[in-house]
Nucleic acid binder design. Structure first.
Lengths: 214, 214
DNA sequence: TAGATTGTTAATCGATTAACAATC
DNA sequence: TAGATTGTTAATCGATTAACAATC
């Protein structure tokens, strides 16, 4: 039972903690102190303890944290202790890249259908996942569990499909289209704006060049 | 000539401003006030003005901002007013998806080579871009301008390739591997951790479900 | 028990918002 | 000129860091 309000900044750090704990777990490390973890991750030990305590005391004074326990607890907080059903909208390069991401499954993410409007693709399979007609979207959602819909189609169509997804009752959208989606409050959207990410990198590169000149 | 220190938070918002200004430009809008933009973008007008003034006064009292001018100025700040040479490491699904991103070119990003270790891929082309042997990486970099290297290979190899890139003099890495890269201070890294993004979405979905129960 | 390290409070730092004088 | 809207300062808010008592 977590606290009422946890800040966005804290949440955004949880997946990274999870990644490092998974690594430690794979390396057979049993316990870790906030100090050790802080050195690995290049964040302050204080922040780690503060972050984790938003969700309860996972550690033990004088000992530190049990890696497996902390890993599992963060997994629970992130909701990856259960099966999450995904569908992909768009069987293009990016959609295919995501379909092939076998690691997801390990964390409970199962991609169960891909939708496209291209007749040449409909009826084929991408990494064993059937490509369906986008017209069947609503029927499919009515008949199958869908937790997350991933959008990898151009922005104009993305906006229309997002509306259809919302109407069909989907509550989470992973959006790769280069646009913001307007959805009701009870629908979660996570944007992956690759072109913005690249521009950000361009800025950093330029800033470092200018630094050097001085 | 911008100010010495601009906060990370401000920088991370610039690409989104750029996207909205591009949209306005395409729609033939000539001027915009911080108030109007704030309503479109769902941020405060105060924040917009504060953000922009880190880089100089682009507006005009009583009038607002000229869309084209502001668009171009932000483009300059982001370093997309010039040609940026990219190479891709990894010709897998994700690498191909990025290679096919024609929109980049419009913003000065040119993908000029792809590297892979798979003999079946070496010598072929992906969207007109030649796939080269990863062994030729250093030779290629010595002979061609490379501003940004994109990494879309598994993490173990990614760490090794990143070291090679740094040694070869590359100053910016767009990293899609599921790991953090250790690089010198003068090398810029932008991470796109898709699995972390998906976990974040999983959290939001779960949080909304719990909200509803109450 | 003594030592180590957490959980948590208090202090600092930074970022956002509000307000308004400057000015086009 | 009068109205509008910026640029900028001050006030608020939130997040990070430091410190240390609690406790394993």
């Amino acid at each position: 039972m977590e606290e009422v309000k946890v800040s966005k900044a804290v949440i955004s750090r949880l997946p990274r903690y999870y990644r490092y704990l998974e690594e430690l777990l794979n390396n057979g490390v049993e316990r870790i102190s906030s100090q050790e973890l802080s050195e690995m991750m290049h964040v302050t030990a204080s922040q780690i303890r503060q972050d984790l305590n938003h969700f309860g005391g996972f550690g033990q004074q004088g000992y530190g944290y049990r890696v497996e326990n902390l890993h599992d607890e963060i997994g629970k907080i992130l909701g990856i202790d259960r099966i999450t059903h995904l569908i992909l909208i768009g069987a293009g390069n990016l959609g295919q890249a995501l379909a092939n991401y076998t690691n997801y499954r390990r964390r409970g993410f199962c991609i169960e259908a891909i939708f496209d409007k291209d007749p040449a693709k409909i009826g084929t399979e991408v990494y064993k996942i059937p490509v369906r007609d986008i017209n069947e979207l609503e029927t499919y959602i009515a008949e199958h569990p869908v937790d997350i819909a991933t959008i990898t189609i151009p922005k104009e169509q993305a906006v229309l499909v997002a509306d259809r997804l919302v109407k069909a009752g989907v509550k989470a959208i992973w959006n790769f289209a280069h646009t913001d989606l307007a959805v009701p409050e009870d629908v979660a959207v996570e944007n992956v704006h690759l072109s913005e990410s690249l521009m950000h990198l361009s800025y950093k590169l330029k800033a470092r060049e200018e630094e050097k000149k001085r």
